[in-house]
Design a protein around this nucleic acid. Structure first.
Lengths: 335, 335
DNA sequence: GTGAAAGCGCTAACAG
DNA sequence: CTGTTAGCGCTTTCAC
């Protein structure tokens, strides 16, 4: 592939002039600039990114590391990040850690070595790639979950309150034994939703539900098993708060296998408003999180740090809101 | 951030030795190697990727450019790519072109400039970033859709046959007026599914359906409008073949607004088996595409080209298969 | 087995 | 306004 030298030769100028012309510096004679442009065109010249980045000591790329590309919550975040980054002239590379701490570390490592301008990390949980990040000068922002033991800008959603509200709401709808299916212990989003659920129970004056909690990975399969184990109890829950939308898939599948309907048989509220939620029968009640906004806010924060903004690490907490639909209505009937 | 020079100074060796030690060359004395390793550790040294890539003239990264991160079909492809790439020591960066030819070109451009080892491109359609790719020495593979007018390795799915089979199947199920909602004219996957639909009609001996075709973007909103326009016809279709899963969302939403049920009122088969498809009432009949395999095959192809495999461009065609569920059963009743 | 030194392709002083 | 030149940080001959 052609280099800047070849372009310079062909245009009969120095490499410096080529560089200036190609980077749109106005300190170059328009006739020379034109010659450079056509020479570059004819040679199919493309600047060598690594060389440029090495020289400039910066790479106009943000890394976004998420734990599950197949989860609409995270892809919505990525759109938010992308829109902001793009407008500021940055590219975004999406890395899928697959909720695997090892992969997460490896991607953080790659991002650091490639000297990206900044990293947006949605930490997988306990052992986090965040340790690698702190200490290096590379700016980073934690999304959705805080980085344990590490201070840095963070964008969170107050899902605790949302979980409490959802639980209270279930009780107001007439359910007396709400259960909860949440993520692994130690994962902040999982623990926070569980705590909110317990608060909600307390606020509603409901007792005797302490055995109605199950944990699993934030995936469909585990949530399905958890559902089965709850519903086979001698005193099963009459409703369920489910901690994310991938899990909801598993819960719904199990309900179907057991011949139970959401709403009339088991009240259901799940986190995250996936596009298919309203198409179910009954439509799924959800706690909608502002995923896109997490992305935009996170990206803005990161960009301002990259732009040398000083100051204490900030934590931005967005709020989630309940979208009641028929899956949390005990009186719901098909038709 | 520490450089190789600082590590060398600290370990009391030359940069060459540091480089050798850190890259696991066995031509270095084990005692020196240990000193290098601890020095690097203490300084929090990370090799500078751009510098290394510049020197080595290669970057162990594959770029995967897809048209919609929020579509499970593409995220499944990305998992396939990632699994293969990872096993071979490559990182994958995912770029979302958002079905926008401009963004696609821009990402191809960035990939080329960053001198990635190879590019996997799921082209957005007509004006394609493919032109940028051909001619450069960078190996690339087209996924899901061919690159118009450009020869290169390609991984496709024979969705034409699948569309034909699905249409015939609708007729066997008793539907007499199947309609079709497909993507924009000129997009190969859209045209091919439409052609298959027409073949199916012919094979089933059905006539008079020529006005039952609508086109829109491969998105929910457009498909929703298309559905409405079809069902408001004086002679509306009694069933629908829908060309992808994002569109299916729009179709289902419109059906609901019109108070119609899939199956009994309007037979439905849609492309792509999304995780929520079986949870609907009635469960959605789909044409399942081997998305994950598209990714693995594409990545393998690309890696072998990167490994200097010569030979003519190949085209691999995978097949899709019908998964019949109740949305294509005219006798389906709720309960 | 180790070090010195060249150079990957580019940009940014610095001269002119 | 343009050219010369010195590196950015690393790997890799080439000597020793």
């Amino acid at each position: 592939m052609a280099t800047i030298n070849e372009v310079a030769d062909r245009a009969g100028v120095s490499t410096a002039t080529v560089s200036r012309a190609l980077n749109g510096k106005n300190t170059v004679d328009s006739e020379l600039a034109a010659r450079v442009l056509t020479a570059a065109e004819e040679l199919g010249y493309r600047p060598n990114g690594p060389a440029r980045n090495l020289r400039r000591q910066e790479t106009p790329v943000l890394a976004l590391i998420i734990s599950d590309v197949e989860n609409p919550f995270f892809t919505a975040i990525s759109r938010g990040v992308e829109d902001v980054a793009h407008a500021a002239g940055y590219s975004v590379v999406l890395c899928n850690s697959d909720d695997d701490a090892e992969k997460e570390r490896s991607y953080v490592s790659v991002a650091l070595e490639e000297r990206v301008a900044g990293v947006l990390l949605s930490p997988t949980g306990r052992t986090s790639g965040g340790e690698l990040l702190s200490g290096t000068g590379t700016p980073f922002v934690a999304l959705d979950r805080p980085l344990p033991g590490i201070s840095g800008d963070t964008v969170l959603v107050d899902t605790g309150s949302a979980a409490r509200d959802a639980t209270k709401y279930l009780s107001e709808q007439g359910y007396r034994r709400p259960g909860c299916i949440t993520g692994p212990a130690g994962v902040p989003t999982a623990d926070e939703r569980l705590a909110g659920y317990r608060d909600g129970l307390r606020a509603a004056g409901i007792r005797g539900c302490s055995s109605l909690v199950r944990r699993s990975e934030f995936k469909a399969a585990g949530a399905g098993r958890a559902t089965r184990s709850l519903l086979e109890l001698t005193q099963p829950p009459d409703s369920l708060l489910v901690a994310n939308n991938a899990m909801a898939l598993g819960v719904l599948e199990t309900l179907r296998e057991l011949g139970l309907r959401a709403g009339s048989d088991v009240g259901l509220v799940a986190f995250d408003d996936a596009p298919w939620a309203r198409l179910l029968d009954p439509p799924l009640s959800v706690v909608a999180q502002p995923a896109y906004d997490i992305g935009t806010v996170g990206a803005q924060l990161l960009l301002s740090r990259i732009g040398n903004e000083r100051g204490e690490p900030t934590t931005t907490t967005l709020s989630a809101h309940l979208v009641p639909r028929a899956s949390s209505d005990p009186r719901w009937k098909p038709f």
